[in-house]
Design a protein around this nucleic acid. Sequence first.
DNA 1: CTGAAAGCGCTAACAG
DNA 2: CTGTTAGCGCTTTCAG
Lengths: 350, 350
Amino acid sequence: MPETKSSGATAHVTSHDVARKAGVSVMTVSRAMSGEGYVAEKTREKVLAAARELGYTPNLSARMMKGSRTNVIGVLVNDLLSTVINEIVGAVSVSLRKCGMDLIIYNSIEDLGASGRSGVQQMLRNHCDGLLFVLPRLSEGYIEYLEGSSQPTVLVNYCRTDTTLPVVGGANYAGGVTAAEHLLGLGHRRIGFIAGSPHTGQSQERERGYKAALKKAGVRSDRALVAQGDFGQRSGFEGAQKLLRLPDPPTAIFAANDDMAIGAINAAHSLGLRVPDDVSVVGFDDIPSASHLHPRLTTLRQPLADISEAAVMELVRRINNAEGQQHRIDFPCELVVRESTAAAPLRSAA
Amino acid sequence: MPETKSSGATAHVTSHDVARKAGVSVMTVSRAMSGEGYVAEKTREKVLAAARELGYTPNLSARMMKGSRTNVIGVLVNDLLSTVINEIVGAVSVSLRKCGMDLIIYNSIEDLGASGRSGVQQMLRNHCDGLLFVLPRLSEGYIEYLEGSSQPTVLVNYCRTDTTLPVVGGANYAGGVTAAEHLLGLGHRRIGFIAGSPHTGQSQERERGYKAALKKAGVRSDRALVAQGDFGQRSGFEGAQKLLRLPDPPTAIFAANDDMAIGAINAAHSLGLRVPDDVSVVGFDDIPSASHLHPRLTTLRQPLADISEAAVMELVRRINNAEGQQHRIDFPCELVVRESTAAAPLRSAA
DNA sequence: CTGAAAGCGCTAACAG
DNA sequence: CTGTTAGCGCTTTCAG
């Protein structure tokens, strides 16, 4: 094999190579590349030219070993397959790039705390200027650990416990209230709820809101009308089937997220019921497909782009130790009325 | 601030700390942790105990700077929001963990070649034992670069050009043939096609198969029956609307993926057409929601789990420089007949 | 404004 | 089986 010669393979170009080529010291290369410290404009250009020609990029590992900024943040999730998580990760990615930062994603199937000491997570901690947990499954112990850690950390859409870590998310309780009030306003009295998995506490908050609205309207909540799902489409399907097969079935179903709402609509269809004529369905999130369905889904729009942006801003603020740090930011969720909800059918008397 | 004292924050525990605590040299710690080289069983236990107590994890950055294994592979994608990509990433994640490896995901919005020299990608190259490109948007130049690079690399579901890089994927051409033959067998003669984005070449292959089957059956293909989409649900909706509003509309539509097929079904509904009574729809991929739709979608099942597993095996083989390296692995796609396809309506004479 | 020295945390390569 | 030496590629001192 021939040596270097600037062709394809470009073995390992180091700052030494650039330094030699530019006729300066490695230190000058470092300064020119990072933009920190004084370098004569002319020298900088010379270095940059040499770097470009050689196809040089600084070795981040080496850089971070000295403890300096990497401009990379780590995004930790538990389930990349979730539509919402994906939306958030996408939006975070955009916001981050606006700040000139980049991101790396780590998907842990298990509790993020359990693998908190795994190699990759450790590596992210070492490598990243900050960490963003998106809808995380976190153990209490790991939260405490993160609270004690000096690494800037922001939780997105996590509302299970009180924590000193900053949390950014949607107003789930208020959203639950809104959803239930919408259905109550349409004359529904038997309103089912399909809960999602409890990891982040979002489902519980939405359920609390739903129950509060029912209570306020003088409607007694019925435990039989609450089905347990896991935020997946299939669980929404099964939950809704269970609910709709009840002796005294609900005339409306509020699903804790859109995926389950989609499953619920399919379940209604599978039982020969029409949406919204026979059953109304409300979701939560407003994922893209919500508006392409048949019928188009009435749902609570979570401003994921805003949430993501705010989370990034907060994280950056903390990385820079800047002013104006917030401890909790909640965004209101807006009711989007489409075709999956309508006035309650008249056959209500059971 | 008080010093260490093993509480929460656990500043930066290094191998030196462990060595001191265990009364051995750093080297012994290194060996005990990595499992390589000889260490007395008793010593190893002592070290491991000290490490556990201190909450020590080796610094991967430092480790890889010496060029040794990290047991981490980098997964590069262009669109985390794509259902299929997500499925693959999920399956890859599982396969990898079976091999005791972990993964990090990097999502580049642009062409992966363009940012090929970006910090993060460089970091991944430095950090990872191998790279997996999932349905990538790659420029020719970058492929050449990868071919010349010594880093183990596998492409998943990429079939645009001939490359010396190993490629694992589904048999797209054959799948296209199968889809079209299924529709032809049901008596359809005017069969529309909704193409996806051309980045990976998958859509073209499926289209080639579709056209070949038509030709073989003596059906003249009509350019007006091919709509250009981008694999997104919305584009399937729009493409199908265009097709179904034609003076002589198709009685069946083959969409290059399930997402677009879903859009197509919605489009049919929106035009007052029934699926499959008025129009049959076939998708490609068999994403989870395909079987929850109404009607349930007839589609070509890509064995994503097998594909992912094979890709991982091939990558590991190359990382270990092991025997039996393959250059191309294609998995057949199986036709799954559900409810979205039926015999062609009789009103065919235009 | 630039350079030389030192060392981040770890692990090959060689001694013992 | 264990320790010592050296050095990965970079950046933070501290001198020019």
